[in-house]
C-alpha cells in the first residue's frame, strides 16, 4: 500500500520535474502540429490500425513489437507521445514505463490494455503512465487522447490566459470574456470550457471530459455530458454570430475558432 502511495505521489509531481530535462523536448515537431509517435504493440492488427489512424491524421508513427525494442527506441528520445501495450513480449508495458521514468524520460505515455479492470487502470497510472486506454478503442478516442497528451506536454506551465478566436479566459481572475462581453460561468462550466480551450482545435471525447472536468472515470448510461455542453453553448455561443463549440458526431466536442 505504502509503495503505491509513493508511486502516486511521484506520478503527480513528475510533469514539473521532468519538463526541463527532457532530451526530446527540442526535437519534436510540435510547431507544425505533426507528432512523432512510438507504438509499442505486439499485435500486428492493432498496430496496423493505430498506425493507419495516426498517419491519416498527419502524424508519424514508428513501431516496435516487443518491450525491449520499445524501451530502446523510447530511450533514444525524439518522440512526442509513446503508446505502449501492457502485455508485451520481452518486457511488459508497466516495467517499460517504470524504466523510462526511472531514466527521467518524461515523454507522455499512453498505456493500452485489454484489461479494463479499475485496479489495472490505477496500476498503469501509478507506474508513471499519463493515460490509460482500454482495448478495444475507437480510433477517434485514441487520436483525441494522444493529441491531448501532446498538448499537455507542451503547454506553458505559467499560462494565465487562454484565447480561442474572440473568446478569452483569464485563469487567475477566473473570468471569461467573448468579444469584449463578459460571460458568467458556474465553476464547473468554467472548468469545462477551460478543458475545451486547452485542447482547442482538437476533439475532446466525453470520457476525457468526465475524467478531466469531473475527475471520474466511468461509463454514463445516458449522455449527461451533452446537457452540460448545451448549457455551456447557450452561454458561449448563443448571442454571437459564429459558433465556437462544435459537436463532432460519434467522437466528442471541439472548440474551434475558424469559420
Amino acid at each position: 500500500m505504502r509503495g503505491k502511495v509513493r508511486a502516486a505521489g511521484l506520478a503527480g509531481s513528475r510533469t514539473a520535474d521532468y519538463m526541463l530535462i527532457d532530451p526530446a523536448f527540442g526535437r519534436s515537431c510540435r510547431i507544425s502540429g505533426i507528432m512523432r509517435i512510438l507504438l509499442i504493440e505486439d499485435d500486428r492488427a492493432t498496430a496496423d490500425f493505430m498506425a493507419k489512424a495516426l498517419t491519416e491524421h498527419g502524424h508519424i508513427a514508428d513501431r516496435a513489437d516487443n518491450g525491449r525494442d520499445g524501451l530502446y527506441h523510447a530511450s533514444g528520445g525524439g518522440y512526442d507521445v509513446i503508446v505502449t501495450d501492457r502485455m508485451l513480449p520481452a518486457l511488459d508495458g508497466l516495467s517499460l514505463v517504470q524504466a523510462l521514468r526511472a531514466a527521467r524520460i518524461a515523454t507522455p505515455i499512453l498505456i493500452l490494455s485489454a484489461l479494463g479492470k479499475v485496479d489495472d487502470r490505477v496500476q498503469g497510472l501509478n507506474a508513471g503512465a499519463d493515460d490509460y486506454l482500454v482495448k478495444p478503442f475507437a480510433a477517434s478516442e485514441l487520436i483525441a487522447r494522444i493529441e491531448a497528451l501532446n498538448r499537455r506536454q507542451h503547454k506553458d506551465a505559467a499560462e494565465t490566459k487562454l484565447v480561442v478566436g474572440d473568446l478569452e479566459m483569464d485563469l487567475l481572475a477566473r473570468t471569461v470574456v467573448r468579444a469584449g462581453r463578459r460571460i458568467d460561468l458556474q465553476p464547473r462550466e468554467f472548468r469545462l470550457l477551460e478543458c475545451l480551450m486547452r485542447h482547442a482545435g482538437q476533439v475532446v471525447t466525453r470520457t476525457m471530459l468526465l475524467e478531466n472536468v469531473w475527475d471520474y472515470h466511468f461509463d454514463p448510461q445516458t449522455n449527461v455530458i451533452e446537457v452540460h455542453i448545451s448549457r455551456l453553448r447557450q452561454k458561449v455561443d448563443r448571442d454571437f454570430p459564429t459558433p465556437l463549440l462544435h459537436t463532432v458526431r460519434g467522437a466528442g466536442y471541439m472548440l474551434r475558432a475558424d469559420a
Binding site: 479499475v118 485496479d119 471520474y216 472515470h217 466511468f218 461509463d219 454514463p220 448510461q221 445516458t222 449527461v224
Partner: peptide, 19 residues
C-alpha cells in the same frame, strides 16, 4: 473502496431515477 466504482453506482441509480 474504489471511488470510481462508487461513483458509477450512484450515477447509475440517479440515471435510473431520472429515467
Amino acid at each position: 473502496g474504489n471511488r470510481q466504482l462508487l461513483f458509477q453506482a450512484i450515477a447509475n441509480l440517479l440515471d435510473n431515477a431520472l429515467k
